[in-house]
Each structure stands twice: as structure tokens, then as C-alpha cells.
Design a protein around this nucleic acid. Structure first.
Lengths: 199, 199, 199, 199
DNA sequence: TATTAATCGAGACGGTACGTCATGTCTTTTA
DNA sequence: TAAAAGACATGACGTACCGTCTCGATTAATA
């Protein structure tokens, strides 16, 4: 009835995948990362915290990175949507500010930074991260810029892809270096990069 | 001439620190990172490869990160100097192009990316990286921009610090995502960000 | 059917303790002690020789001494039984001769000597040795003497406990000093100590 | 005059062997054994405690066992002399009582027990222990018994060597097992073993 | 009176073993 | 068939000592 108090052990599942176990793993991974850092994010610790057998994790996820990707994709779809219609300089600036906030404040931002980091250490992570997170999102961001150009809202001197790098790069770079990202930086980037020098 | 053939074991040092052992460790760490990735970079593996006892590593370095920092600092001082005099848009573009090349091509660039990554995973690494590498270099980069402004060579719309982020961020971001960094991106960044919109 | 050739790796166990691993450890420890001495008896060497992970040893035994105690108890129950019924001077002499043979000839005797030795070096070993081996066996030996007295078979001038020391002490002492223990010594001890001076 | 306060470091020696260093090593080894057990008796610890360089120890002693032998020989010559003249049952009993006291109470007794133990673990120790300590002392003890027989003071049924084993064995055995050695045991051994049954 | 030679404290060095931890695979038991 | 439990082989962790070595200083005997 009261749905899984910590005392009463989650009921064993039977022969279908146990959704409660899946969620317990995702939350445990998220919590461990935020609370104790990537170093504490071991399969053993996740299993311990989730109250789940290691084998259950290995059965459904090939690595801890995939667990993080699951949480990241879900969270960033929810809290960091790419504006898809009416892409104006204004809405783009809004996205960038949200992106900066996400990276520096949101717990899910820690997950993104951790995955960017882990992708440097491990090629399989790099592949999976690009395929499941980065490439789809980059496509949306590129489209955002491209549509803005088509609509005459913006006139960057760089191509859409390079423009995305030029806008997001500084934000990510600052966040990686542990610095905050002031709104002024975002505003100035939008000003300098999205407005044609001829205007 | 005779000087340490590979057969003849490196002469034991005695009372003072053994420079040969120090270099062997630095090179082993560098090589392992480049050849087999950060995952293979264990103290045991470094010791094995360098032909050095683990204790010798622990005696002189508090962590493998510090070993990498030693190599990075040495290499980037050598191969990625920040232009200190006559900072013109031209020389700044040269530095940025060199930076892009360093990050994407130079083995030491892998070290830098690995350290940026590891700094996300471990706060102590973050501290050490900032203190020993990032902060001093950032100071030089900021000065480069500031002197350029004073000399009237450039007129960015952002402050010196933000300008550095805006220039380096996209390069780092692209490299982190595994992309190459075309000269065109660098040139356009310089064009858009260093030249006053009024000119 | 052919049951674990050396090539075919021992089948992994699963949930329950692996009896094959347990035996492999006991035999490896025994063999190493006999072949290369106590100095070669390291946990690493036992694990290596048994084809077992160190952790498997640490999981089940708190120290290498306990491994030796396991083998000693099993072996001495089997090959050095204390005569429990009809304790005559004759049967006691038989036990003492067997004891001398065990100490000087039987591989398990080396284990006993090693444990007596290690008990001098380490209090925890001393405790464990007394509790698991010495005290129970001493109880049996004392009973043997006491029953012999009750039955009128022997009439030692010392109490049962001291009689045990007086009989076993010289044998152990000789063995510790690397000397053989001639039957004559045993016989004379029995003659002098178990027979009442009045007879 | 005040001779080496702990603050003022012992003066460096120069060309000749430094007697102060030698004594410092012997005392440090002794103290460490008594205070912290054989396990704490490492060359490093001895050097640390003695305020001496490791090399100084290795220069003069081939192993820590030889250090202990040095102290043991000196101490037992002083505090456990074998009665050399007028060996009566009485003086022999006195020696045995002293021996029991030495083993169970005297710090040097700990050294003897430790060496007996270590001799079981290491053949080189066994050789050195026999040659430097056990054999010479055994010679004296055998002579003691033999002279007593010649003088008609005692009439053991065993030969001199076996008599020594029969007398000392129980004492050593009890001490090794951590038990005290009551005077009664000694007296009874003397009574039973040194007096001819015919008397 | 210098020089030589041995000793000393100090401590770096290449190693081995320690006892702990996480990995990913496996098996048993329960539902 | 899934899941909890947990044993297993593997291998890295960071620490402690091992025994060897080289240093610079000290001090006594030799030249």
C-alpha cells in the first residue's frame, strides 16, 4: 500500500523487469555522484545504495556511464529543452542562460560535466556519449541556429555549427574550470556572434 | 660516450634524488596516457614501465595527476608559449591556432584534456590543476589581451577575462567533443571578438 | 567425470563456499611450509600456489596461522590420536613414541613446530593456538594420565598436568633444537616418571 | 661529563667503530622485543629507535637475529650461569629454578624464547643459534651432569645428554606454552630423574 | 700538517608483501 | 525468468620493510 518504505524491502519482482529496481539504480547513481563525486560512483556502491544486486545492474546496463546517460537524457529533456520554434536572438539567449544555469547549478549539470570528463578518459564512453546525448542535442542546436538565420532573426558570421561551438564553448569552458558563468558573458556572446557586423 | 646503455642498469643514486628516475616516471606516464589512455594510467603501470619502484613514485608525487601536471607544465611552456610582447590580433590568432593544434595533435594536448577531465572527477585534482597550470596560464592570457587593448591593437566588447573565455572556450569545447578545430573557426572568433564593432 | 584436471580451471562456485578452494588453500599452505619454510609462507604465495584470489583467503581466514591450525588439527586428529581407553604405561609409551615420530618426521609436525614458534612472536597466534589446538589436546592428555592413575596402571609422583609436561617437554625440546628423539629417551621417561618409586 | 643527553646527538665517531652506536642498537633491539614483540623488531625500527643509520646495523650485523644473540649471550652469561663446580642435586635444582625464572620473568628470557622460535622459521637462525648459544651452553650443562655423576652426587638412569633434555625440556615446554613453571615441577623432576631408583 | 681511510647519520633506490577495495562473472535460492 | 545474495579470480591501491647504494661530515692514523 504505502509503496516501498525503506524498512519494508521492495517486493521481489518475478519474471518481468523490475521498474522499482531500475529507478532505485538511477537515483542511487545520481545521488552518489552529487554527494560524493564520480570517484565514489562504483557499481558496488550503486548496488549497495539502491539495495539491488550487482548482477541486476550488470544485466541491464553495460557500464555506469550508461546509467548516468539515462538520468542525463531524462533530466535534460525535461529541464534544458532546446527552443524549437521562433528562434530569435532573444530565445537563443534564453537557452544559453538556461544552459549556463543547468551546468553550474542543476545536479544534472554535474552529470553532464562528469560525462564530458569521462569521455576523455574512455573511448567507449566518448562514443556512447556522442551517440546518445551529444549528437542529437547538437542537431537540435544547429537547427535552432539555422532556422534563426533562415527566418532572418540572426546573421552570424560563422556557419551554424561553428556558431554553436562559439556560443556554448565559453559556457562549458568556464563551468569546467569551476567558474560561474555571468549573464554578461552570455549576453555579450549573443551580441557579438549572432548579430551581423553590418547591422 | 658510454653513458647508460639500456642493458647496464641505471646507476643507483644514493643520497640525492635520482633525476633519471624522475624522467623515467614522467615519460612512462606520458607514454601510457597517449598509448593506452587514462584508464591504463595506474601507479603500478607507471612504475613497471619506468622500471622504478612504486615507493619512488609515492615518495615524490602525491598522485598520478601531479605527474601529469609536471609533464604538462614543462611541455606547454615549451610548445605553447603565450605571446608576451607586441600582442596584436595577428599574434593572438597565432596563439589560438597553436593552442588548437596543441589540443588536437600534440601528445601533451591529451594530457591537458585528461587533466581537465580528471578535475571534474576529483576536487583535489581541480585545485592542483588550477593552482599549478590554469591560473598562471590564465594570468598570462589575460595580460595578453589587456596589453593588446592598451596598445590599441584590439578593441573587444568583452572584458579581458571574458574575452579569453570566449576565444579559448570554443576551441576547448570542440576538442573535448572529439572534433577537429578548423582554422576558420579561430579566424572568425578573432574577427568577431577582438575587433570593435565600430571599426 | 574426470573431476578437475589442472588445465580445466576449477569450476566457479557461486553462492556457497567453494570446498575446492578451501582445500587448495590448505594444501598450498602445507606444501609451502614443508618445501620452503615459514618465511615463504605468505598470503600471496599461498594464493598463487592454490590458484586462488587473495581475497578468498582473507574472506575465510583471519591470518595464515589459522590456515595452518586448520591443517594441523585435521592432521593430528588423524595421525596423532590420544589413546582414550585402557591407558596403561604401555599405551602411553606408544603415544609418546608416536608423538616423537610426528614431531620429527611427519610434515604435520613441522606445522606444529612452526605454530609453537609463531606463538612466541605473536600474542594473537598464541591465543588461537592455545584455544584451538593446545588446550583441547592437553585436556585429553591430562585425562589419559588421570585415568591411568585411577585404574592403578601408573603411579607418577607428579600430578597429571605436571606429568604431561614432564613427558612431552623433553620430546618437544629436543625437536625444537633440531635433534632426533631416540626411543630410549621416551622409554626412560616412562620408566622414571610413570612408575611409582615404591615399586 | 654529562655524556650524551638525548637532545645533544651522540658525537660522530670517526675512524673506529662507535661503541655507543653498538650499545644503542643492542638496547633498542632488546627494548623493542620486550615492549612490542618480535613483529615490531625490524631493522628500520631498531635503527629509528637507536638513532642510528640502517647501514650502520648492516655493517656490523648480518641479521637482526645476530643482534639478539649478542644480547642474549651477554645477559645469560651474567644472569644464568651454569654451576661449574660442586654439582650436587642441590646446585642443579638451583640452576633449574633460575632457568625457569629466567625464561618466564627475565626480559632476556623473552629473547631466548624468540630465538628458539625464530630458529624454527629460518635455518640460518637455527645454525647460528646452535653454534653461538645452544651448543656451548649444552656442553656446560652436560658437563654439569657428568661431573655430578662422577662425584657420586647423582645417579640418573638416563645418560647425561638425555638427562639434560629431561630436566630442561619440561621447563622450556611450559614456558613456550605461556604457563608459569612452579618450583614443585622442578623439584619433582630433580627427585625423579637425578636420584637412582635403587637408592 | 696534510692526506687518507674508515665510520657515521641520512635517505633514495628497486623490490616484495601487506590487507583492502572494486571489477565483472558466476551460482544458488526465492518469488 | 528476474532479482537478491554473495563467492570467486583479477588486479590496483597506498604502506611498511627489505637490503643496497651514495652522499657529505667527522675523526683517527699515516705520511
Amino acid at each position: 500500500m504505502p509503496a516501498a518504505s525503506p524498512q519494508a524491502p521492495r517486493p521481489r519482482s518475478g519474471n518481468r523487469r523490475d521498474e522499482a529496481a531500475r529507478l532505485a539504480v538511477l537515483h542511487a547513481a545520481d545521488d552518489l555522484l552529487v554527494e560524493h563525486g564520480f570517484g565514489a560512483l562504483t557499481i558496488e556502491a550503486i548496488a549497495r545504495r539502491a539495495g539491488v544486486a550487482k548482477q541486476t545492474i550488470y544485466r541491464w546496463w553495460p557500464s555506469k556511464v550508461e546509467i548516468l546517460l539515462d538520468t542525463l537524457i531524462e533530466d535534460s529533456d525535461k529541464r534544458l529543452p532546446v527552443p524549437s520554434k521562433t528562434p530569435t536572438a532573444e530565445s537563443i539567449r534564453g537557452y544559453l542562460r538556461n544552459f549556463a544555469r543547468f551546468l553550474t547549478t542543476d545536479p544534472a549539470g554535474k552529470v553532464l560535466l562528469a560525462l564530458i570528463a569521462e569521455a576523455q578518459h574512455d573511448p567507449q564512453t566518448a562514443r556512447s556519449f556522442r551517440k546518445r546525448y551529444f549528437d542529437p542535442r547538437r542537431d537540435q542546436e544547429r537547427d535552432m541556429i539555422a532556422h534563426g538565420i533562415e527566418a532572418g532573426e540572426i546573421a552570424p558570421s560563422l556557419g551554424p555549427d561553428a556558431t554553436v561551438d562559439a556560443l556554448l564553448g565559453p559556457i562549458v569552458y568556464s563551468a569546467l574550470m569551476g567558474a560561474s558563468v555571468p549573464d554578461g558573458l552570455v549576453d555579450a556572446l549573443v551580441e557579438d556572434l549572432l548579430t551581423s557586423p553590418l547591422e
